[in-house]
Write a protein that binds this DNA or RNA. Structure first.
Lengths: 185, 185
DNA sequence: TAATTTTGTGACTGATTAGTCAGTCTTAAA
DNA sequence: TTTAAGACTGACTAATCAGTCACAAAATTA
């Protein structure tokens, strides 16, 4: 792995474990096996590194979801995205936590709002298609997306807290409930 | 207001604005109008202050919800809790943000798990009653609470991002959707 | 009022931090 | 093999930090 990505991976793990300011740049460099100064060749400031980790993680999740080839109606595609998101988060718990931590931190304001919106654009389009084809209730698109997205991450949290539960069953049951909530009867 | 609470209020605002480690204890003391050393008379360490802010805010919200006198079936009480939570968060946005920030930070691990659970106990009991009286689907109680809770905070976020929307309407519509999702048909 | 206790003060400190820079090492082209 | 450019190094620094402490002020009791 190239040094830049290795620094990002190391920073991710330490930031999740110790928080942003609880993690010294020197510690990141050391654990990544490079010199202190090398870190600052790849990232001008610590803040730039914090942002870079977020962009990397968000991009990874977006790419993973975009790679899904599920066809069919809005419901089928939405189920695939829901299930895919949850499984990805459970497979990469630190990355899931980083997203949550970054979103609820003041650093989120450093992200370009338009760029943030680009990440969710495919989801918004899917909702829009659902409404257009009269599969989904004619609600505000952002509202439907918010319900979809919060439930997705909420179920991830539930499955992290309740390891024993049958994942597949929970995912399927809760998706059906979510769908019943937004579909036109 | 007594000094301790004033320090908590000041710390809350600064932590939300600048993050935990982005806020120096000296700055908190200064903005609260007390000497540096006074802060450490009320809180032995910065960490203790961070926890105290969380306990204070969580307690405030819990007390506000406990004060609700709504009677009737599980649905009516649940609607009151849903609506009450959302309105309280919108009225105290910084406190809402602090809760989110604290929950997604590593500091959450410093909180006693049993104490955390005590905060949500009334909600769990309400869900349990709903299931017992066959109003709510016989799902895992924690799962139902997770769905309820994530949607509550999700709608708060939506209403913060979309100030123009009619709050009352959004709250009522989304509660009905949530209820339809968990109720027995 | 005087004595005692409680509360508040802010200059100070040792430790830690993000970021720098003068110089070394690696790579690959000439 | 020589040379040049870029990658890498880590000791260093100026700034900042959490927390202390000797003392002062205020409140309480006698």
């Amino acid at each position: 792995m190239d040094k830049r990505n290795h620094l990002i991976e190391t920073a991710l793990a330490l930031f999740v474990e110790n928080g942003f300011h609880g993690t010294a740049t020197a510690r990141i460099a050391k654990e990544a096996g490079v010199a202190n100064g090398t870190l600052f060749q790849y990232f001008k400031t610590k803040e730039e590194l914090i942002l870079a980790v977020f962009v990397s993680v968000k991009g990874e999740l977006a790419a993973f979801l975009a790679a899904d080839k599920t066809t069919g109606g809005v419901k089928e595609v939405m189920m695939a995205q829901y299930s895919g998101s949850i499984k990805w988060c459970l497979k990469h718990v630190a990355k899931y936590r980083y997203i949550q931590q970054f979103y609820s931190s003041p650093y989120i304001h450093l992200m370009d709002q338009a760029e943030l919106r680009r990440y969710i654009e495919p989801h918004l389009q899917l909702v829009e298609e659902g409404i257009r084809t009269k599969a989904i209730k004619a609600l505000d698109i952002d509202l439907v997306y918010q319900l979809f997205s919060t439930q997705t991450f909420g179920i991830v949290q539930y499955l992290i807290n309740n390891k024993g539960k049958k994942q597949k069953e929970v995912i399927e049951t809760t998706f059906q409930m979510l769908w019943d909530m937004i579909k036109i009867k």
